[in-house]
Every structure is written in C-alpha cells, then in structure tokens.
Design a protein around this nucleic acid. Structure first.
Lengths: 343, 343
DNA sequence: ACCATTAAGTGAATCGATTAAGAACCGACA
DNA sequence: TGTCGGTTCTTAATCGATTCACTTAATGGT
C-alpha cells in the first residue's frame, strides 16, 4: 500500500476505515463523535502527515475565507512609502493578525475586483481608490465592505467627525467678522472638474466627506458673523499639487482678496502656501491658511501648517474591528488640532 | 422566471440553454466553440450580470491561485515600519502587480502555514521567520518557495554575494598584519545559543549566509597576512540589541583586545560601537568596527558606520521575478561598500 | 420484555467550477 | 448512398471538502 504524496480527507478516511464525514467531524465538530474515536483519528492523521482539511475546498464549501482584502488608494508601492498609510496598515494588520485573519493587498489601480472577490470575506477600502470602477464593483459584488475616509453608502465606514473637525479648525482660523474667507474644497462634486462653485445649496444635505467638511466651515463662518459671498468656493477634483496650485492661485487673486483660506487637505494647503509666498504675501499676516490631515510635510514647512491631525493607526484598528463585527455603522475617530504658524 | 441574486456557471448555462462546458469554454478556451456562439454567450453573461467563473472554485479545480504569500520575518506591523523591509516589499509588489498576481501578507509569528498554504501558489520568504516551525513547514508543504537572505535548500533564493561582500568589507577594515581581529557572527550555529566559538572547521563547508560571510572574513584575514586565534569568534543567535551587546562586551574585553571588529549585521555593529564608546575606546583609533546591511540608523550614528549596503527594492524585484520564472536557482544582487568613520 | 430516547457514525447531495471522452451534425468525396 | 474527417457541443467524472438526513446500537424506564 503506497502512501499518496499528499492526503485528502477522502483518502485518509479510506485508509482509516471510517467515513468521510467522520474525519471531517473529527476536525471541526467534536460533538458529533465520541471522544475516543476523535482522538484516535486525529492522532492517526498526524502520524500519516495529513494536516487537516484543505482550506481552499473548505472555503468553497463554507463560503468563508479568513482573508480580507485591503484595497489601497493606489499601488502597493505607494502604500508602503506613505507614512500615514503605513500607520493605517499597521493598525489594520495588528487587529486582523490577532484574529487569525490574513491580509491580501489589493491595488487601487486594478480595474477589476474580480481576481480577488471570490477569495475574500470582504474588503477594507482605504480611501477612494484611484480607479473609479472599483467603487461601483465594491457596491455591487462585495460580500462585506468597510470604507475609510469615504462612503459608498453600504455597510460600515470609518471617518473622522468631519463636520466637527472642520468647524473647529475654521473657528480657529477666523478672527474678526470682516475676515474675507475662501474655501478650497476637495471633491465637492462628483465629476472630476476643477472649478469655482457659485452655489452651495445642493451640498447642504450631501453626505460625502467634502460636504460634511463644507458644512463645518459654513457653520463656523456663520457663527463668526461673517457673510460668505457665493463665489468663494473652489472645487478641486483630486488631492494633487497641480490642481491645488491652480485653484489656490485663482482664489488668492480673486476679489476681494481673501485673508483666510480654508483647505480641505494639507496638500492643498501646502500648495496654497507656496502660491501665497510666491505672490509676496506673508503668512499669517496677509493670509491665514489651514489644512486637513496632519501630514508630516506640513509640520516641516515654514511656516508650520495649522491643521487637523488624525490618528491613522487607531483608524486602522477601528476599521478592522468594525469589519470583524460585521456591524453596519459609521465609526468616528479622534482628531486633534495641530497648531502651527500658518494661522 | 426569477433571476437568482448571483449567477453560477451552471445556472447561467441553464438560462442560456447550453451546457456547463460550453459556458466554461466560452470563458477560457475560445478554440473549443464557434466564434458566434462564444460572443453570444459572453454578451448574454454580461447582460445578465455574470462576471465569469468563480475564482475560488476555479482555483480548487485547477490548483492555481494567482496569489503569493509574502512571509515576513516578524509581524506585519514590523514590516511596514522598517524602511528596508518596505523597500523590499515595494520591489516585490511592483513585479507581481504587473503580472496580475495578488500579494498576501503572512506574519512570521504565525506558527502554522496551514491557514494559507492551500490558497496560494507559493511563498516568498523574506528573511528567516521568527517562528522556526515555519521553516520546516515551508520545506515540506510549500508548492514553491523563494527565500530571501537565507536558504532552506530547495527551490530558489536570492542573496547578496555574501562571500564577496564580507571579503570586501573585511579587507577594507584590515590595515596591518598585526591587527587583532574579532568576529561577531550572526547565526553561525543552528541552535539559539549565544556563545564563543573555538573551532571554525565545521563552518568551512556550510552554506548558510553566516558561513558564507565567515569565509569571506577569513579569506581577507588570511590575505592580509594575519593569523586569527581560534577563540576570536562569537555567535549571536538573533539580531537583537540585547544579545549583541553582551557579545560585544565580551569580545571587547577579551585578550588580546581586538582593534578590528567584523560584525555580521549593522545592528550588531551599532551595539558594539555603543559598548566600545562606553568603555572609553575611540573609534576608529582604538577599534575599527564594520557592519553589514546598510540600515539608516548606521548612517545617523556618530561615527557613521562603515558597512555593506544592499539595494532592497531591487532585491524585491528579483525575488518576485525568480518566483514567477519558477526556476530553481540562487540569484545574486548588487551591494556597495558604504564608507563611514567607524573604520 | 417492550418501546422511546439518545448517541455514534454513514451516505449522498452539494459548493462552483474544469476537462477528457464521446455524441451529433455537417459537407465532401468516392 | 455510405462513410470519413472535422467542428461543435454535451455528458459525466473530478477537485477536496461540509452537512443534512438517515441507520444502527446502546441505554433507560416501566
């Protein structure tokens, strides 16, 4: 009797002279057979070198995988290079590892969830993926999703309290009721267009991150007794230096020239600071600028950026925990105002 | 006729009035059916919302997964924190992503390959995993393995040319034929013991990284016309500050007091430098110390560490490429001597 | 001694696919 | 007309497991 190179449940059952079901039960349902029988079987398997049911087959049958895909906003390369993203990943992996769940990295550049969707229990999606199709697919085919820093309107998501945070930072930036405010918004609109927005009405009920932040700003502006003109807002389609610079230049040379600039990301704020300095303005005397995120570069910049800092690692832990709990809710994470010299 | 929430090959075949096999062939063997039939089927699937064969089932049947597990030396946390490791990962992921292969992160703390072995095409193992059992399991159950920075004696591996590199660095450190040399070795022995080694003979044919490096050192020592005493070598079981400090202290206070210290990792070298400074020695006047790896901390240390630097990202790319090629060979990567003030 | 319970173990359908082997059909050629 | 070769499609076994429904044996109560 020649021992097969690798055992299967079936072959091992035949070898031991018991049924398929009994071996399976020995491994995962102890209550279904006598203790003696069970131990006898497990011992025999160990001796013969059968390490337990094949996980792929098990997963096909059960429909669970013990794998979650982390959808990155961009390439895997980007993820391990960016310190904020790395922290987030650290948080996620710590929680998953503790629960014996494996992490599959999935690039946001991929144009098809297909290659992994059948292999995972679900997705943790860190930021809106670069490839827009992925969002649609997540909505449609994912068994379970936790989104971070954006919403797709299903399952769970984790965000900072955007409304409160942006209210706080705006309140800090505003000083007098004759301040001239301008807003540099990130993805206020669905389409990818860089533009000046003349009408806020439609945003007032919006649930996107950007809309929440906008409402925070508006409330602080209102509280400060300032009247915001209806052409004081720009929409930037993605957090890139190029778009941000253009918008910043526009805003800074608009009439009346603003002396407070509320920016929805640090990257935008930094671009704005560069433009302002280039125009010979001094910060914060001529113009006060605040950001959102708390990236390192903002702290190194001169003047140091005033912004909202989020705890990324904590965010990761919460996202993973939320994923495991399968609850359908929006979690909020802490933030701190990080005061610099830019306001 | 109510459309099922999610289609399967079978249900879609019945719906279209063709056989299972025909649909399957439409998706993966165009030559098995007429062009017309094929296009008709694919179009119908698209319209009905069937996105193609379930990957999990496909993989079970075919035995291929399009997933490779990256076995980390330690937790995932550690991996994304360590810049050298991150670079490596960047290299790996770039190549895999280009080939449409997904990356599964697997912690070296796990004590069982079991949870993933049935899900992946193989393993890229970055450094000897913290949990020793994993190594045994890799040898036994992995379909395909590429090891990096260590060997398990099967499939492929990628390493720096340890012999040449350590020869070079040692040659650089040695100046006169009355130099008194000591060696701080990393994992010269299989067991986890910190000890002083009195006998090199058995290492002379060894294939481990440590043995290769040792031979490089010995050759340089020999070439320099130096006679190495047979008690001038210490074995450190793992690259940890604690062990390294103890060994360094021992070596530095041994007789004759060495004036050249060859260290098999930067971490060991740094610990040695700290001990030397603590003992009031000056570097490099009283003692010249060299390391191996090229970690950032070594460049920040005063005096700057002289060491061997390896290109980690390139290492990652090569590891992944080697994995994909399925060839069974040992690849070598480039290294550069990084000269500091420690020698 | 009889019947009702419970415990232990088995048979067979099933998860969602792939693929070898064979059936049906078509036109062509002798 | 009969049959041959080629194309197109189907049947059914298989990958490696889980689990429901069932049989058999043992126990207990009266």
């Amino acid at each position: 009797m020649t021992k097969p190179k690798s055992w299967t449940l079936k072959s091992i059952a035949k070898e031991l002279g018991v049924s398929n079901a009994t071996v399976s039960n020995a491994f995962n349902r102890p209550d279904q057979l006598s203790k003696a029988r069970r131990e006898e079987i497990l011992a025999a398997c160990k001796k013969l070198g059968y390490f337990g049911p094949n996980k792929a087959a098990q997963s096909l049958r059960r429909g669970t995988f013990n794998i979650v895909a982390l959808v990155l906003p961009d390439s895997v390369e980007y993820m391990v290079s960016d310190p904020v993203a790395s922290s987030f990943m650290r948080g996620v992996s710590a929680v998953l590892e503790k629960n014996g769940i494996n992490l599959l990295l999935f690039s946001g550049n991929n144009d098809n969830l297909n290659s992994v969707v059948d292999f995972v229990d679900g997705f943790i999606c860190y930021g809106r993926p670069r490839n827009k199709q992925l969002v649609e697919q997540l909505k449609q085919v994912a068994k379970h999703v936790v989104t971070v820093d954006f919403n797709i309107g299903r399952d769970a998501s984790v965000n900072v309290n955007n409304h409160q945070a942006s209210f706080d930072i705006a309140k800090h930036a505003l000083q007098k009721n004759d301040d001239r405010v301008a807003i540099l918004g990130l993805r206020l609109l669905d389409n990818d267009v860089l533009c000046r927005v003349y009408e806020h009405h439609e945003f007032e009920a919006g649930q996107s991150i950007a809309h929440q932040r906008l409402r925070g700003y508006l409330q602080a502006i209102n509280d400060a007794g300032i009247t915001l003109g209806d052409d004081r807002t720009w929409n930037i389609p993605e957090s890139s230096e190029r778009f941000a610079s253009i918008a910043a230049k526009e805003a800074l040379s608009s009439t009346p020239r603003p002396n407070v600039l509320l920016c929805m990301s640090d990257l935008i704020a930094l671009a704005a600071m560069r433009e302002a300095l280039k125009m010979g303005l001094s910060i914060p005397e001529d113009i006060r600028i605040v950001g959102f995120d708390g990236i390192d570069e903002g702290q190194r910049f001169v003047p140091k950026l005033t912004t909202v800092h989020q705890n990324s690692e904590e965010k990761g832990r919460i996202a993973a925990t939320l994923f495991l709990s399968k609850e359908q809710q929006t979690a909020e994470i802490d933030y701190q105002l990080q005061l610099g010299q830019s306001s």
